[in-house]
Design a protein around this nucleic acid. Structure first.
Lengths: 333, 333
DNA sequence: CTGTTAGCGCTTTCAG
DNA sequence: CTGAAAGCGCTAACAG
């Protein structure tokens, strides 16, 4: 390349990066050859010099899930707009894999990490202690690192969802939640539910609490388990839309009508919330925008070369649709 | 690192890569320091030496779509198992972006590309002519490059879907398809539909043909457009499940029953096919496995250092569920 | 078996 | 304004 244009590599570098003045003559010559040969500098070599890769590691538990797939799109868009690319890894909620990927991120000298932790273990702690790399945590309040985290207020959102059901006259309210160790969708959402019940003078009925991974089958199974109890709830708070849909499927398959026989509120406002009939009443969180914001926050850390601990709480919103109703005309159970 | 262990960097390299014999004494010393410091070699520097990055570029039009999100998971799993990582880009069906990303892939010296092309333009052609990089195309028969492509037989699958409807006694069959320039989900699926109709002595009714991007709203809109015609079909072939769901929503919202008043067959067997009620009759394609296989095929090219043109046709399968029925007791229209 | 040397393709001093 | 030289962190070829 430099040869072809009859200049030094330095000059080529200078015209490409516009880093130092170059005479218009040489510049033109170089530009011509660039156009002809389609030359572009090796990002790898550049990376070696600058100790920057312009690569962001994005680690999430699952792709095939509206929340995450939209989040990815948001993050990708912002990354692209800032000259970054995304190295995507899927952890499948496996802590070992998470730590494994973390060190891959390190070895590859990624410029930053966006990380949806499933559980912050000692191995995680160790990594972030030993190694310094701009990071944004997703979905959980990770307080023990200097890095920001971004999430919605799961406690509050769940409190509101439960309160909403209570305001509709429900007193027997069950919950379909994530696994206990999943702080945000398991623990926090359960806490909100519990608190709302308590504040209304209602008791938590353990038989109406079901925990497992968020997927449709578990929603189905969870609802089944609960409907096999002697005493039945009149409303359910499903901590994800997929759980809600699974639950509704179970109920409909067994002759129950929604919302006439059971009110169900979901969480996420996934695309399916409106495709599904009845349309889901749910808590909306803007996952695309959360991905975008996480990426903005990360890039800011990278370019400013400083990270400040901050907590980004995203707004959520209760959207009332068709899967919930007043208790007034509920059958006696 | 080398200093700490009191050896040369070469020796360190040798124990890490096990590339040449090292005395057990030095080896131990080095290993100890590695353990202590958590040292790991820079992938970037390695990449520069080897001209390999162990990175695969994956370009798809959309993440938030079951077909692609599962495909990503399949590809990621295989990549990981072989020591590769994925650089993910989302093209949003934008040809310029596609070409743009292609050259990013080149500049970053990715080891290979898995590419779901929307339309193979001159710019694409030019890229693949000028530049040699292991590639696997996804979803379209790209015949003009030396690289393999992987897809299902869209023509045949659509023929079967349409034939299935015909066998149920339907003679008035509409179609909700992808945009024309989308060879696989637009053109090929339309061709299969058309051929099946023709072979059965049925005519294509242009008013029952609707084309647009595959999403739920377009399914809704498409069905609306068709239902506003004077003469109505008794069955629809939706070229994607999301289209099918949109269509069903429209019909149900307007008092039609599925499948009693209209039979609908989808395409993809997305997760929602069974969550949705009525459960969708659809054409199943295994996108996870397609992603995995594409990655295997790509990695083979990379390690064998040779590419042979091949065509990987994945099986598809018609799955009969609840959204289709015999015409026998259809209302006269 | 081990270390020294060269070089991967770039950018950044440092001279001129 | 321009080029030569040094070096980013590693591996491979070459001596010893």
């Amino acid at each position: 390349m430099a040869q072809k244009a009859g200049v030094s590599v330095t000059t080529v570098s200078r015209v490409i990066n516009n880093s130092k003045p170059v005479s218009s003559e040489l510049r033109e010559r170089v530009e011509r050859v660039i156009k002809e040969t389609g030359f572009a500098p090796s990002e790898v070599a550049r990376g070696l010099v600058h100790r920057k890769t312009k690569l962001i590691g994005l680690m999430i538990p699952k792709v095939a899930n509206t929340f995450f797939s939209q989040l990815i799109e948001g993050a990708e868009q912002v990354a692209k707009a800032n000259g970054f690319n995304i190295l995507l890894t899927v952890s499948h909620m496996d802590m070992e894999k998470e730590v494994d990927y973390l060190s891959i991120f390190k070895d590859r000298q990624l410029d930053g990490i966006i990380f949806s932790v499933s559980q912050f273990t000692n191995l995680h702690r160790q990594f972030f202690n030993e190694f310094e790399i701009p990071t944004v945590f997703l979905g959980q309040q990770i307080k023990e690192t200097p890095y920001p985290y971004i999430l919605i207020d799961n406690f509050k959102a769940s409190y509101e969802a439960t309160k909403y059901l209570i305001n509709k006259g429900h007193e027997k309210i069950g919950i379909l939640k994530g696994p206990d160790y999943d702080i945000s969708t398991g623990y926090e959402r359960y806490r909100g539910y519990q608190q709302a019940l308590q504040d209304a003078g209602l008791a938590v009925h353990d038989d109406w609490v079901f925990s497992d991974f968020h997927d449709i089958n578990n929603g189905y199974r969870g609802m089944k388990t609960i409907m096999e109890q002697d005493e039945l709830p009149t409303a359910m708070f499903a901590c994800s839309d997929v759980m809600a849909v699974g639950a509704i499927n179970y109920l409909q398959d067994h002759g129950f009508r929604i919302p006439q026989d059971m009110s169900i509120i979901g969480f996420d406002d996934a695309e399916l919330s409106t495709m599904f009939r009845p349309k889901l009443t749910t808590i909306r969180q803007d996952s695309f925008e959360m991905g975008a914001e996480a990426m903005r926050c990360l890039i800011e850390q990278i370019v400013e070369k400083k990270t400040e601990k901050k907590e980004i709480i995203f707004p959520h919103q209760l959207i009332e649709r068709e899967s919930t109703a007043e208790t007034t005309n509920y059958l006696r159970r």
